[in-house]
Design a protein around this nucleic acid. Sequence first.
DNA 1: TCGACACTTTGACGTACGACGAAGTGTCTG
DNA 2: CAGACACTTCGTCGTACGTCAAAGTGTCGA
Lengths: 253, 253
Amino acid sequence: MRDEPLKQQTDIARAAALIADPSRARMLKCLADGRSLPASALAGEAGVSAATASVHLAKLVEGELVTVSRQGRHRYYRLAGADVSAALEALALIAPPLSVTSLKQSNRAGALHRARSCYDHLAGQLGAGLMGALLDHGALTGHDGVHRPDEAVRDRPASYGRDIRYELTDSGREQLRQLGVDTDRLPPRRPAVGYCVDWSEHRHHLAGGLGAALAARLFELEWVRWGAAPRVVLVTDAGAAGLRRSLGLTLAR
Amino acid sequence: MRDEPLKQQTDIARAAALIADPSRARMLKCLADGRSLPASALAGEAGVSAATASVHLAKLVEGELVTVSRQGRHRYYRLAGADVSAALEALALIAPPLSVTSLKQSNRAGALHRARSCYDHLAGQLGAGLMGALLDHGALTGHDGVHRPDEAVRDRPASYGRDIRYELTDSGREQLRQLGVDTDRLPPRRPAVGYCVDWSEHRHHLAGGLGAALAARLFELEWVRWGAAPRVVLVTDAGAAGLRRSLGLTLAR
DNA sequence: TCGACACTTTGACGTACGACGAAGTGTCTG
DNA sequence: CAGACACTTCGTCGTACGTCAAAGTGTCGA
């Protein structure tokens, strides 16, 4: 505090201001474990529009709290360093408990985690759960469905996967038929079996022609229906029962 | 991140918002080393009015980043705990360097550190330096002039001291006469030798009738003059030379 | 008891900033 | 090549908040 050789003064108010916005704070919290996530996922987590999220992320990059890496039409954001997560943790220690009103805001984030649409198929706990059930039953082979960032070559959260080639088995064809999905009537040119890396689950969910057909069938059966907010999908009571009965899939909560 | 037993969510945005204001950040920085300071000192450090500082401090108390203890008409503020200073340090690590415009704002704080008025006498480096010179020359006896919070009984920064009793020596009377201060003509009822604990220097500066008379004499000699901002005192070139010559006192910068 | 002082409260003012819709840019799919 | 998509930029709106002067409260000293 004296006028001694004061080492580089830093502007802690500016750094704090970057964290002080509730939307940005929620985004940073999601990135706190070191993941890198696309802007759209962070917008969903924060409960704001893509435009708003974009502005926030630009500020975080400008302030060097996060870095961005472009991959095709996605942009993946991650914390700039360990010192950033350290600062977040230090703040968490002195922060008051989250008020109920702010918790309500995260309802949509919770709903997105449980089940959402991804292009024309299903994602979230529901999407990854379906994939897991298909693998457990031997309907699909080729991988265990878990995304491991270290081993991933081109696979990134929230986009189509390329590292792995899943195969539909004869048994799988039969199981899907019983659900009402005719695997012989899939669109011709489109690859039947594809997958995405689910950003909220760190696991694969079914995509491709088959993923789209399965999603359509679940809507048809009214096992799922659209929620209020964009991309939010809700599992109906009939759906929870049906999924448990036909695939042994039980969803939390 | 999963929906697992999420321990108490905390509102890091609120905590960050408390630090995100430049004035509050400057106050917190001053308190970072554990000192407790009165509101007026913090207002000076932050470069804002007492009213503004009061609002800020109320918010910091409300947010439990600082605590307050009343002592007479003063209120002493200090950081609420070690975790608060830890958070400040963590933020300092990720903060950008302070911009020039913000540095300019701290000019007044720097000026207040160098020399300011305190009631009717002088404080800051100048005030504490004068006190030190008088002690070095044996003009005063009774203590070494350093404030030690552990040993202090009733002494607090930025208010009149009571723990110690300084005595003016015959030699001191002579030295002051040479400066033009007649120690026989001090106001009758007021104690001649008093002191305050200088909050920026952690040392004592001369107060009482003698402190006032010395300050008045230095203004009369034009060794010091008023600065632009309230309570700011500037040492003139003649003053720097005179203080060095008569008391061996050299002021930094 | 009165005035000086430390601090807070009130009220008014200006502005900085977060929010979104709509339009624009680049990239992938079929 | 056309369309869908991820993301950004632009323009506009509303509001939350920092700022200070002035007035109010409590404490100290003469």
